[in-house]
């Protein structure tokens, strides 16, 4: 009882604010983003592939949580289904077939990728300068087609989940394409790893190279 009284004002304060829970969710987002960054750096630094697999599991858990915090439930759902479970299993079975440790890379050879990464990062930051503010309801992305989807789905398709309406009907062809991508991935595994695949194969030595 005492405890409840002590904390009550704070919780009331939160409850009374204009967007209940929004600021808290925002804080959650910040923390999750920080953890994502930390995990990513750790993955880069780590030489042990097993540890990297572990961390990538954590990474996908975090990103799913992040998507949830951003209210992108369907994306989070996919991330949860693929990232946490299946992809870890697949990464591990991949590691099982190769070495366990990453080979060290020359310092010189890391220079170019680093430069590229920096340039790309700079470009992205440059782009954000003119970007509409985060969550701005008047941003073009929220006003134009997005708003039309929200308006028209109830009359056009009558499906409560607008995401499903967009995925399966409005942009159903894209989803067909993605299904084919998945199919292709399966086919690729069948071809490259499946029964009677290219196991072995000749090694051709090049005299010149």
């Amino acid at each position: 009882m005492l405890l409840a009284e002590a904390v009550a004002p704070a919780s009331e304060l939160l409850a009374e604010s204009e967007f209940p829970g929004l600021s808290a969710a925002f804080a959650v987002e910040i923390f999750i983003l920080a953890m994502l960054a930390a995990t990513a750096f750790a993955m880069i630094r780590m030489r042990q592939l097993f540890g990297v697999a572990m961390l990538s599991g954590i990474y996908s858990l975090l990103s799913a949580a992040f998507f949830v915090a951003l209210d992108a439930v369907d994306v989070a759902f996919t991330e949860a289904a693929v990232g946490a479970g299946v992809s870890t299993v697949l990464v591990l079975s991949g590691i099982a077939l190769t070495a366990k440790r990453e080979l060290p890379v020359d310092r010189e050879r890391t220079f170019l990728p680093l430069a590229i990464v920096l340039v790309v990062g700079a470009a992205l930051v440059y782009a954000t300068i003119d970007m509409p503010a985060f969550g701005d309801p008047n941003a073009p992305a929220n006003v134009y087609v997005g708003a039309q989807y929200i308006e028209r789905t109830p009359e056009d398709i009558e499906v409560p989940n607008i995401v499903t309406a967009v995925l399966a009907s409005y942009r159903g062809f894209d989803t067909l394409g993605e299904t084919v991508v998945v199919f292709t991935a399966g086919l690729a595994c069948l071809l490259l790893l499946g029964a009677g695949s290219i196991r072995g194969g000749g090694r051709h030595d090049d005299e010149e190279h």
Binding site: G21, V28, L61, A65, D71, A80, A84, G85, V86, V89
Partner: peptide
């Protein structure tokens, strides 16, 4: 995820939590 669902008033989040509870074990 579960707490966030309550925090943001979106019970649909629980589906994801449920999925995780099942699948995390596999990993």
């Amino acid at each position: 995820l579960a707490v966030l669902g309550f925090l943001m008033g979106r019970p649909a989040f629980l589906d994801i939590a449920l999925l995780y509870a099942l699948i995390n074990f596999i990993a």
